[in-house]
Design a protein around this nucleic acid. Structure first.
Lengths: 400, 400
DNA sequence: CCCATATAGTTCAGATTGAAAACTAATTGG
DNA sequence: CCAATTAGTTTTCAATCTGAACTATATGGG
């Protein structure tokens, strides 16, 4: 007999309802709902909510924050919120910088720090050591703010195997099948450290802490062109975990060869390198080249304008195909594309209009406002969401 | 408070376990498992399975089929199977034919009938009337076989709104926003008739009754080029229900204009019309033109060979992009593409190798063996799956 | 100032359900 | 014919929700 689904036990009902209550409190974070409001919102009885909230408060996930005084009749409720004394550390390794952030359960970024670091070509061990120093800063910040760190999320610009903590391939770091030990960054954290893809984390950050709708494609223009697909408020990673690889969609069958071995991939037209080259920006650091490009654009320099226009045109083709294939109705531009948005967006829109008229509303092509913190928030948020979705498991092994 | 998830009640556990048991019996259809085997397979106790099976037998969904006699020691078990006395009618409207089939809960096609019918341009009412005659045949077949019809599935070659029984757009029938009344085809069926898209149904048929793996893209070459995406053994329809539209992926930015208003869509290279035209097959009925094309290919006629090779090449580009974007690892060719597979497949494979080397194994590009019955089985199967997934709801309003 | 009214939250009986264990049923093999 | 073995049922128990009754704490009119 081949089976997979677990049988339903009576206790599963409580698991689910603990999550439901926690989620309800999380969604209404600003309102600090009372037990009675949670009961109304979830459809559970007051009795059940009381019992569930008691468990959540005891575990430290939820705190009571004083009484209501809204001038209404009746006994005032106890406001509930996700504990601001429990946090998760978001971390990011990128090609030219490292970053950490401390996010409390309510989603507030309580501390963050970024350092420049030329990571391309460095061994994972060296990079992890540098990142460890940043993580220590986050731990110190947590201690002084009285925050217990539950876990961490580490985003890298490449394809990862979350289960086994392996970076399968991060071409822009020149990493190939590298075993990491992210747990070492936060040794005492009961939930450990979760490895994730940078574009996917940024997409999730946009979903949870930005203004991404329930369904959208996040497009990250970094050195490569990555993407994160959000469907029904969930990250879609595909059966093998590598969905959203927008950069290697074929946008011109007679286009140039790509580093992936293919031909005419989007990345050969809209990757950072391709844009800089077409715009005739000389070699240099990424930050410097970006400055030069923006200056050239501002000065109406024809090569620069043309480079960005072409990138936008091919990005539009890729988006048209993606939207058709996956029925995507909104797109959020991030990374390099957010920086270039003023010049890029018109080209993308006119390309969309040419290749898939009427498919995407112009208003549904938006630009991320979170910038780098989006990735940190998303990386940490994945751990926070895991707790919200399975508080029961967390309560069992609770850390005091 | 904005909430969506329903609270977990104690009774939900039984709902879930009823489905689990029914699913276990369905998966092991040929083995006719005993209660004890179901218990072992699901992880439930024998006691729980006994109680659950009693409800399922009483509702008529499951029947006991005699004792085991496998020569082992111990009391023999009662074999269980999905009742072969309950069935669902699958129906299909396509451009040049109508079809119905009677499928029992176990997935056997107990009766089927197809008639040629030039439906393009006909009003939905006229087509539905013709289809009603075929449905009557299915009903008569059910009666004489002692099968109670629970519901039906109707597949059409276009985008549908399942909830409201509207065909939003079926360009090849020249239907645009047509309200149907599929319930009228099977008036007494307690579960009604479910409208669905033809390519999606065919994909599901391939999944449930063919040899499709848990994750694949079904590509249907009919008059248009459609697709059905199966992920984790589920149909992926996208937030708006129109995912899988492979036909309008842009495969050449300077390609011809497409009926969708776009440019360079796959359909302009690999749609039936495009292939016939490039192969210089004269106008005529679809069946006749297909015969001529196959004859020309067999005779090594250069235009025909080139037409199919080009179609394959562009199909390969679309598949490369799709596989990258959605992380798809297997493709099943159906419809026209299955008929042309011998000539088409080499071109698709070499195109894949050029545009996305190593992404898809040649063995994971397969050809459907179900042909037309795949769509019927898939259309009916959706109703069968709905019962398997929610037997509790079915038991409540059970028909005698 | 007091009490009717209203709202928040708790307590407790009742119902549903699966687990576990003991039990009954049916078969094989020595 | 009986021990061993496997299938399936019955019984007891614990978990957990609902619903109703109850307690707690506020507002506001007389």
């Amino acid at each position: 007999m081949n089976e997979q689904a677990a049988p339903g036990r009576v206790g599963d009902v409580r698991r689910r309802n603990l999550s439901l209550v926690l989620d309800s409190i999380a969604r209404n974070g600003d309102a600090k709902p009372s037990r009675a409001q949670v009961a109304a919102g979830t459809g559970l009885t007051k009795a059940a909510v009381s019992s569930l909230v008691a468990d959540l408060v005891e575990s430290g996930l939820v705190s009571e924050v004083g009484l209501y005084r809204d001038g209404e009749r009746g006994r005032p409720g106890q406001g509930l919120e996700l504990s601001s004394r429990r946090g998760v550390v978001g971390m990011e390794i990128n090609v030219d910088y490292l970053a950490v952030g401390l996010v409390d359960l309510g989603g507030s970024l309580r501390f963050s720090s970024t350092v420049e670091s030329r990571n391309r070509g460095l061994k994972p061990g060296a990079v992890m050591e540098k990142l460890g120093e940043l993580a220590s800063q986050a731990k110190a910040a947590a201690t002084s703010a009285g925050i217990t760190i539950l876990g961490g999320g580490l985003a890298v610009p490449g394809l990862v195997d979350e289960q086994r903590n392996i970076v399968l391939s991060a071409p822009n770091l020149h990493w190939e099948h590298e075993q990491l030990n992210p747990q070492a960054l936060l040794e005492d954290a009961p939930l450990g450290v979760r490895l994730s893809n940078e574009a996917n984390s940024a997409a999730l950050g946009e979903l949870w802490y930005g203004d991404g709708p329930a369904d959208f494609l996040y497009v990250s223009g970094e050195v490569g062109v990555g993407g994160g697909v959000i469907i029904g408020s969930e990250l879609y990673t595909g059966p093998g975990g590598s969905a959203g690889e927008l950069g290697h969609i074929v946008v011109h069958p007679e286009g140039p060869s790509c580093s992936c071995g293919g031909v005419g991939c989007l990345e050969t037209f809209a990757g950072q390198e391709a844009i800089f080259e077409a715009a005739r920006i000389p070699e240099g650091s990424l930050g410097r080249r970006t400055e030069l490009l923006l200056a050239a654009l501002a000065a109406d320099e024809p090569h620069a304008k043309r480079a960005v226009r072409d990138a936008g045109r091919y990005l539009g083709i890729a988006l048209a195909s993606s939207a058709r294939l996956m029925d995507i109705e909104a797109v959020v531009l991030g990374g390099h594309f957010a920086v270039l948005a003023d010049w890029l967006k018109p080209a993308v829109l006119s390309s969309l209009e040419r290749y898939a008229p009427g498919l995407l509303e112009p208003e549904s092509l938006t630009v991320s406002r979170l910038e780098h913190s989006g990735t940190l928030l998303g990386a940490a948020g994945q751990v926070i969401r895991a707790v919200i979705e399975s508080p029961f498991e967390f309560i069992l092994g609770k850390p005091a």
